[in-house]
C-alpha cells in the first residue's frame, strides 16, 4: 500500500531523556483524511514537528510519499503544506502581503493568492493587517498559506483550535472538499467528535506511543463492541476477592458496584449468567460503551 506518510518506530526524547514520541509507526494512506488524535501533551505536535523536519530524527525512519524525509528536505515541501501549532503569520503585513511573500518565495503564479483566499473565505479581508484578525481568521489564513503551493499533502496541527462552532464547521467542510480534490490530509486534534466527523482514518497517540490506528469504520466497530459493564452487587467488597479469582480485570467502583471490562457485547450476558449461576445476587447491570468511553479507556492506560 502507498502511504502519504509512514514512520517506522519513530522516537524522540528531549535532553532529560523522557520519551515524547515512543516507537511511533504511523501509516497514513494516500487520499485519506487521517485524524491524529490524542489528549494535550500526548506528543502530537512533536510528531508533526518531526514530520516536517523541524525536529530531527536520529534515524532515517520518516517517509513521505515513499521517499525518505531526511534525504528529500527541503524539496519535499514543494508538495507539502503545513500549519504547525498557531498559524505562523507576519502580523505587520496584510493577508495578501503574507501570501505574496510565500508566492514570491516559491515562485508561484499570483493567481494562487486569490484562489486560496476564496477557498478559506478571506477575499474580503485580503488587504487588512493580520494583527487585526480574529483567531479564526488567522487560522484560515494559515491554512490558505499552506494551500498556496496546491500541495498533495496537508499537515495541519489542531486547525480548529480557538474557532467558534461555525468556524469549526467551515474548516471541517473545507478539509472534506480538499480531500475530495485528491489531497491527503493529516490533521491532529484532541477533540474526538471533530475527528469522527471529518476523518477517514484515525491514529490515537497517548504518552508518545500509538494506541490505535485504523479506518474510522473499524474504530467505530471496535469502540461499540468493547466496553465496560458495572454490576450492582450487595456487599461487593466481601465478594471482590472471590470475583477477582475468576475475573482478574474486575474492580470495585462503588459501595455495591463492581466493574468488568469486556471485549465483545456477547460477553455481558455470559458474565451475568456466570455470576447468577455462582450465586452472586446481581441487582442491576449498567453497560458503558461508545466512542468516548473507548477513547477514555485507551488514554487512561499507562
Amino acid at each position: 500500500m502507498n502511504y502519504a506518510i509512514e514512520t517506522r518506530e519513530l522516537s524522540f526524547s528531549f535532553r532529560n531523556g523522557f520519551p515524547v514520541v515512543d516507537r511511533l509507526s504511523l501509516q497514513v494512506p494516500m487520499g485519506s483524511i487521517y485524524g491524529f488524535l490524542g489528549p494535550n501533551g500526548a506528543g502530537k505536535t512533536t510528531t508533526i514537528r518531526m514530520l516536517t523536519g523541524m525536529l530531527l530524527s536520529d534515524r532515517d525512519n520518516i517517509f513521505i510519499n515513499g521517499a525518505s524525509l531526511q534525504k528529500s528536505i527541503p524539496q519535499v515541501f514543494e508538495k507539502i503544506g503545513a500549519l504547525i501549532e498557531n498559524p505562523s503569520l507576519y502580523l505587520h503585513l496584510t493577508a495578501i502581503e503574507n501570501l505574496r511573500m510565500i508566492t514570491t518565495l516559491r515562485g508561484l503564479p499570483k493567481a494562487r493568492m486569490d484562489a486560496v483566499l476564496e477557498i478559506v473565505g478571506l477575499t474580503g479581508a485580503a488587504r487588512r493587517k493580520v494583527k487585526e484578525f480574529s483567531l479564526g481568521m488567522k487560522q484560515r489564513l494559515g491554512i490558505a498559506m499552506a494551500l498556496l503551493p496546491d500541495p498533495s499533502l496537508l499537515i495541519l496541527d489542531e486547525p480548529a483550535n480557538g474557532l467558534d462552532p461555525s468556524g469549526i464547521i467551515e474548516i471541517r467542510e473545507l478539509l472534506k472538499r480538499l480531500n475530495s480534490e485528491g489531497k491527503t490530509i493529516f490533521v491532529s486534534s484532541h477533540l474526538l467528535a471533530e475527528i469522527e466527523k471529518t476523518c477517514t482514518h484515525i491514529g490515537v497517540i497517548h504518552k508518545g506511543s500509538l494506541r490505535y490506528q485504523d479506518t474510522l469504520e473499524a474504530m467505530q466497530q471496535t469502540a461499540s463492541a468493547s466496553g465496560e459493564v458495572v454490576f450492582r452487587i450487595p456487599a461487593a467488597a466481601e465478594r471482590l476477592v472471590n470475583l477477582q479469582g475468576h475475573h482478574p480485570d474486575c474492580r470495585q467502583v462503588g459501595t455495591d458496584e463492581v466493574l468488568f471490562p469486556f471485549a465483545k457485547r456477547e460477553d455481558v450476558a455470559l458474565l451475568n449468567q456466570q455470576l447468577v449461576g455462582a450465586g452472586v445476587p446481581v441487582e442491576g447491570i449498567q453497560v458503558r460503551g461508545g466512542l468516548e468511553d473507548w477513547f477514555m479507556r485507551l488514554t487512561q492506560k499507562n
Binding site: G53, M54, P74, F77, E78, S88
Partner: peptide
C-alpha cells in the same frame, strides 16, 4: 520579526535551502 510570530517554522517548511 520571526521570533515574535514564530514564523521560523513557516520559513523552514518552504522548499528552499
Amino acid at each position: 520579526l520571526e521570533h515574535r510570530s514564530d514564523t521560523w517554522k513557516l520559513m523552514e517548511t518552504q522548499p528552499v535551502a
